[in-house]
Design a protein around this nucleic acid. Structure first.
Lengths: 339, 339
DNA sequence: CCTAAAATTGGGAGCGCTCCCAATTTATTT
DNA sequence: AAATAAATTGGGAGCGCTCCCAATTTTAGG
């Protein structure tokens, strides 16, 4: 029961200056047609009275929330915080607020979050889906209502809207080729859930690199998993104990790669001597672990900025002029000691 | 220019059912005094027409934004994301939205962000200040306007409001005592800016531990720095090259400790054999680096939950009943290989 | 000095909803 | 069946602001 002391409104300012609220509104919104003297008087009084505009009223009147939403699967790895930071920066420049929601990799939560965004009348959303998301009705609603939506990282294939991704295929290809060129013969791949396009693309990059170098793909060495921490140990141990174990592991992402390294070490094997490991994303941690992780770096900042720009492009234009570009950004292989 | 297709309002529902908007409003807000049949008819139609309530209008009418703000210095280390995740969870349970803003350790930005929160009429804020924040007028405004505010981690001493902190003194004391008990004689301390209470408290804990064990504090071994990455190398190198160098370093936080380890290693010295290192916070990274970092763990989840609860306590009560508890949570020393 | 044009201001409806109070309908009691 | 109480509904003002259109004032032109 927040007892708000009566707030100062434009009407108060108007009364005090003996002018109309319309005029006050004009100067406060930076409208040009107002006498310089009047403008000054209003501004001075607003300053003096510590007037604070009520965005909620403005939003209602203008039918714009000046808020964008970000829906992401998690915030605890370093990839998303960096992207978010970049998005927020762009949003601030445009004078927009940002509502962030984590889905915690849960489809249900993602649906709820989308609903909340809708309730709050966001002017646009930037989303990266959960590993569980197979149905996209909750996101198509935005399209249907004419609310701009932009995907990044984990995108929805069946929706034709702007997207920002990296060249996962090429990134994976480069990483695996690097392993091959450094003499690895049996390269395993810890893949992600096949529902995610990034999983498939990285897997394809992996397969293509093998093929190019005439190494037959061994199904035994390809494991698709659902990002659950507990499972990694099982899979890595399984790989290690094969009669013909891998001499390298290419992991779908850095957290997986890092855990993989821990488990390999726990088994008394050495990285990279016995098994080389390569990850994807260049998390903040990756340079710090022992051995430092070879990984495919993503331009996180650029991803965030691009996504935000694509969104604001739409927000500013009439929906009839919307384009649906898919920006594919370049990755960069960072070779460290783990390979 | 988002072309919003005319949205369905409670008035539309009312007209369709031939009842008044008041009644529709009643059922939609869960008001009890409404005939069950009517309730059902309204709910069914709302469902059928995919009615979506307009939170902005509700906010204006009720004078409540149902939004809380979080102001933090940064989001890129793992401490804050964890705390935020916990706060968001609590907020969701209470039906509140969350606006997050990073100050990037800049006072200016913090002031701007506070203003944005005010513009958006947040019902409360949870804040952790930047290292630069010495003036608190921008935060006192919340108090003045009767908007609940709760501090955590980096708190403002001159404001009497609820706070959530950990026992920094004791945490530091325990960490340093641990170093002493494991035989270290010359323990340096990389402290934070003295403007932050946590810096002072951790420093005091450090000093107290030395005192207890009759080790004279050597000013040469105590360095206060401003969290700037570049400086760490300078300071650590300086310490190493003293005629009488330290055999242990207690760092104000984990990022500092981690960088310290890197620099020590770069100098050809071993951790912990030559110099032991202890950090503070138990960042996600800390267990993964080589050697794994001994650190003082903070109950991040509990911190977030507690802060949120303290905030909602106030939001729900009249300001006359506000209490100003300072919750001091326990830390836990996690001993790993770096000491 | 009068008139037309330009600049500036005011009035008022409207954004979608809540909530108080009064009106109406239904149920209860004697 | 009348009178009263309880349940349900409707009306309308108000939240703080924007923005269109009309009114007023100022400036320019002849």
């Amino acid at each position: 029961m927040t007892m708000k002391n009566h707030q100062i409104t434009i009407f108060d300012l108007a009364r005090e200056l003996n002018i109309s609220k319309s005029t006050v509104s004009r100067v406060l919104t930076g409208h040009p047609n107002v006498h310089p003297d009047t403008r000054k008087r209003v501004l001075d009084l607003a300053e003096k009275l510590d007037y604070q505009r009520n965005m909620i009223a403005i939003q209602l009147a203008t039918q714009q929330s000046r808020t964008i939403g970000i829906i992401i699967p998690e915030i605890l790895s370093s990839y998303f915080p960096y992207v978010i930071a970049a998005i927020q920066e762009e949003a601030r420049n445009e004078g927009y607020n940002v509502i962030i929601s984590q889905s915690n990799e849960s489809y249900e939560t993602e649906v709820t979050n989308a609903k909340v965004m809708l309730d709050n009348r966001v002017d646009g959303v930037i989303v990266s889906i959960t590993k569980e998301t197979l149905n996209f009705d909750h996101l198509k609603v935005f399209q249907k209502k004419g609310i701009p939506i932009v995907f990044f990282n984990r995108v929805c294939n069946e929706m034709v809207v702007p997207k920002v991704i990296v060249d996962d295929y090429e990134g994976a290809f480069g990483a695996v080729e690097h392993l091959i060129l450094s003499g690895r013969k049996r390269i395993a791949h810890l893949s992600g859930p096949s529902s995610l396009a990034i999983s498939v693309k990285r897997l394809n990059g992996y397969l293509a690199a093998l093929k190019k170098h005439n190494i037959p793909a061994d199904p035994e060495l390809i494991i698709s998993y659902d990002f659950s921490k507990e499972k990694i140990a099982i899979y890595v141990n399984h790989l290690i104990n094969l009669k013909n174990p891998p001499d390298a592991i290419f992991a779908i992402n850095d957290p997986t790669a890092i855990d993989t390294i821990q488990i390999i070490k726990k088994n008394g094997l050495r990285v990279p001597e016995d098994i080389a490991v390569v990850g994807f994303s260049d998390d903040y941690v990756s340079a710090l672990i022992e051995p430092p992780l070879t990984t495919v770096a993503q331009p996180v900042r650029e991803i965030g900025i691009t996504a935000a720009q694509l969104l604001f492009d739409q927000i500013k234009k009439d929906s009839s002029q919307w384009k649906t570009p898919v920006k594919v950004l370049k990755t960069k292989l960072i070779i460290r000691k783990s390979s």
